[in-house]
């Protein structure tokens, strides 16, 4: 299992990739997103699992994104996602709206290797009316019929990216109680993972850690990125940075402000690393 420098990890994402990202409260790969901006990623098709936040807005603002599928894009208490809103208005990205359990279900179908899975609810929502890829059938198990139910196609992201607490040298990664990350990793063709640190030993040989570990089977490569979820929180390791979210939200309101943000927090890191 290669443990790469962060910027080498970022160039493993080809232009046009369907890239699945967890939201800000669940191991978001924020530093990896900044590395993708530095690497000049293009035409990414982002999938929010099940919603999207800082990383998605940043990548959109930096011109890395062609489309977004998500159930919600926001900066939480810092408000709406400004670059997402601007790009949608300008028509520079395509948006596919979903609803959270539908995204989980499409990934669960991929995880199981079945072509589709049913989901209750959703009927009567305009989301369904705008999803040619979602179908409604009559529940074949209902006596007498008359029970419409939505079918969702399996969805396999090209790449899943997330920021875990630690990895071992085998490539097993520790996500703690955030088992929903396992579904993303299982469904994706490959996973690229940043971590706070390398664990000395094998995570799967420790009974307590193994319960929160995703097997290296699913992991293509790992990079160390300390405070790699910042400005989001990471499990019990560190809290979110609301002041930084507020600063991002303020700067990203305008194109010029967003450039200032990139110079201050995204490109600067690359310059420092090169020194």
């Amino acid at each position: 299992m290669p443990i790469l420098p962060l910027d080498r990890l970022a160039v493993l994402v080809p232009d046009g990739a369907l890239l699945a990202l967890p939201p800000d409260n669940s191991l978001t790969p924020a530093e990896f997103a900044r590395a993708l901006v530095r690497a000049g990623a293009r035409n990414l098709r982002l999938l929010g699992v099940p919603v999207s936040g800082y990383a998605t807005d940043l990548l959109i603002g930096a011109g890395c994104v062609a489309s977004v599928q998500s159930s919600g894009v926001s900066l939480g208490e810092a408000g709406f996602a400004p670059r997402f809103s601007a790009a949608l208005k300008a028509g520079t990205i395509a948006m596919t709206d979903a609803t959270c359990p539908a995204i989980h279900t499409m990934l669960q179908a991929a995880e199981k290797g079945v072509p589709f899975m049913p989901l209750r609810g959703v009927l009567g929502s305009d989301i369904l009316a705008h999803r040619a890829d979602w179908k409604v059938i009559d529940n074949p198990f209902a006596a007498g019929g008359g029970d419409p139910i939505v079918l969702l196609p399996a969805l396999s992201p090209d790449i899943a990216a997330f920021h875990a607490m630690m990895a071992d040298t085998e490539g097993n990664v520790y996500v703690g109680r955030r088992h929903e990350l396992a579904t993303i990793a299982h469904a994706a063709r490959r996973s690229l993972v940043t971590v706070e640190r390398i664990y000395d030993g094998n995570l799967l040989e420790d009974e307590r850690l193994a319960a929160g570990t995703i097997s290296a089977t699913y992991v293509e490569a790992v990079a160390v990125a300390e405070r790699g979820a910042w400005p989001a929180a990471l499990l019990d390791a560190y809290s979110a940075d609301p002041a930084h979210y507020a600063e991002y939200a303020r700067l990203a309101k305008t194109e010029d402000g967003f450039r200032t943000y990139l110079d201050r927090y995204v490109r600067r890191a690359a310059a420092e690393a090169a020194e």
Binding site: S71, V73, K89, V122
Partner: peptide, 17 residues
Amino acid sequence: RAARFPGSFGSAFMYLM
């Protein structure tokens, strides 16, 4: 396209279920 809200989150499911 006039004013974008954040998105539907889980509402399309939760409201019914």
